[in-house]
Design a protein around this nucleic acid. Structure first.
Length: 295
DNA sequence: ACCCAGGTCATCA
DNA sequence: TGATGACCTGGG
C-alpha cells in the first residue's frame, strides 16, 4: 500500500494489527528526537521511544531502516503522522541541494536521519519560551509538570501520560498557578502568551498562512519571545523553512566555518538566506546537531 | 560557592 | 539601533 507521495522516501509501508512498519532511509529516531527540536519524546530503550503528540501517546521502535509505529492505526498514520514526521519530503534530494560545501556535507552525512517535525503551534510556542537561557533536562522537566498540572491524562500500558495543555484549559491562569512547575521568571511569559493568544491579539493558528516576516513580527508581540525563539516556533511548527534560528551554538559554528571572524545575527541571517534560501532551516538543524555532538 | 544552560528584557547612550 | 547586566532554577 502506498500511503504517501514520496515513493523514494517510503519504500514500503505495511499495516499490521497493532503495528505499522515503515521501510525508509533518511529517518533516524535518535537523531530526530534528540536534535533539540522537541521535548516530549523519551528514550525507553535502544532505538525505542515513547512520545506525546496532540492527545496521543505514540510508541516507536527502529532497527536499521525499519521503523515501527505502535498504539496507532492507519487513519492516524495518514491524517497525523505523515504530516508530523514530514514523510512526504524527499530528504535525499534536500540534502543534495544544501550540501554545497565541505562542512555542510559533513553535517548532513552526520545527521542524515534528522527530520524536521511539524509540531503543534501552541506547544512549540510555550516550549521555546521555556527553552530560553535554560538546559534541556530542565526544559523537559518543566514541560512535563506543566502538562501534568493542566493537561489531559492518557493511560497507556498501565502508565499515565499527560497531553500538552490546550489553550482553553489555561484560560485565566495566574503566575501563582504556575509556581509548582518551577519555570522561574518564564512564568509571566507563559501568562502573557495565554492572554495574547486567547484574546486574539496574536492569531496563532493563522500565522502559518502569513509570510515569514509577518508571522515573526506577530510572535515578537509576546513577552519572552525574541528573534531566536520566534524562529524556532516558525521552523518547528509552521513549516517556515527559510528561518535560521541563531543561538550560541549556531552563531559560533557559522562564524567559525563561514565567516572566520566575529559577526552579528543580522549578518548571519542574511548569509543563511543567500546560501540556503528556503532550506536554511534544514541547514541550521544539521549544523546544530553536528556542532553540539562533534565540536 | 560559583558557573552554566539552544535568550530576552529593561535600561541607557 | 546597539551595548550591558540581571535573571528563576537545578545540576556539576
Amino acid at each position: 500500500m502506498i500511503i504517501t507521495r514520496g515513493a523514494r522516501m517510503l519504500k514500503e509501508t505495511s499495516i499490521h494489527k497493532n503495528q505499522i512498519i515503515l521501510q525508509t532511509a533518511y529517518f533516524d529516531l535518535k537523531q530526530t528526537f534528540e536534535c533539540g527540536q522537541c521535548f516530549r519524546w523519551n528514550k525507553v530503550g535502544q532505538g525505542h521511544y515513547i512520545g506525546l503528540v496532540k492527545d496521543k501517546v505514540l510508541e516507536m521502535y527502529q532497527e536499521g531502516q525499519e521503523i515501527s509505529f505502535y498504539n496507532t492505526d492507519e487513519k492516524d498514520f495518514k491524517d497525523i503522522w505523515v504530516d508530523y514526521f514530514d514523510l512526504n519530503r524527499n530528504y535525499e534530494e534536500l540534502i543534495e541541494e544544501i550540501s554545497k560545501e565541505k562542512v555542510m556535507k559533513a553535517a548532513t552525512e552526520y545527521g542524515k536521519g534528522i527530520r524536521i517535525l511539524c509540531q503543534d503551534e501552541w506547544e512549540t510556542l510555550i516550549s521555546f519560551i521555556i527553552s530560553a537561557n535554560n538546559n534541556i533536562p530542565r526544559i523537559k522537566k518543566i514541560l512535563e509538570s506543566f502538562s501534568k498540572l493542566f493537561g489531559q491524562k492518557i493511560s497507556y500500558k498501565g502508565e499515565e501520560y499527560y497531553a500538552f495543555p490546550t489553550l482553553e484549559s489555561l484560560q485565566g491562569i495566574t503566575e501563582k498557578d504556575l509556581e509548582e512547575i518551577k519555570s522561574g521568571y518564564r512564568a509571566k511569559y507563559i501568562i502573557d502568551a495565554v492572554q495574547k493568544v486567547n484574546e486574539g491579539q496574536v492569531d496563532l493558528y493563522n500565522l502559518k498562512n502569513l509570510e515569514t516576516e509577518e508571522a515573526r513580527k506577530e510572535l515578537l508581540k509576546i513577552k519572552g519571545i525574541g528573534p531566536k525563539v520566534a524562529d524556532c516556533i516558525l521552523l518547528f511548527s509552521m513549516r517556515k523553512y527559510n528561518c535560521y534560528p541563531i543561538d550560541v551554538w549556531i552563531r559560533k559554528i557559522t562564524e567559525k566555518v563561514y565567516f572566520k571572524r566575529e559577526s552579528t545575527p543580522k549578518e548571519i541571517q542574511k548569509f543563511a538566506q543567500d546560501m540556503w534560501k528556503d532550506n536554511a532551516g534544514f541547514a541550521q538543524q544539521y549544523l546544530f546537531y553536528y556542532a553540539r555532538n562533534e565540536f
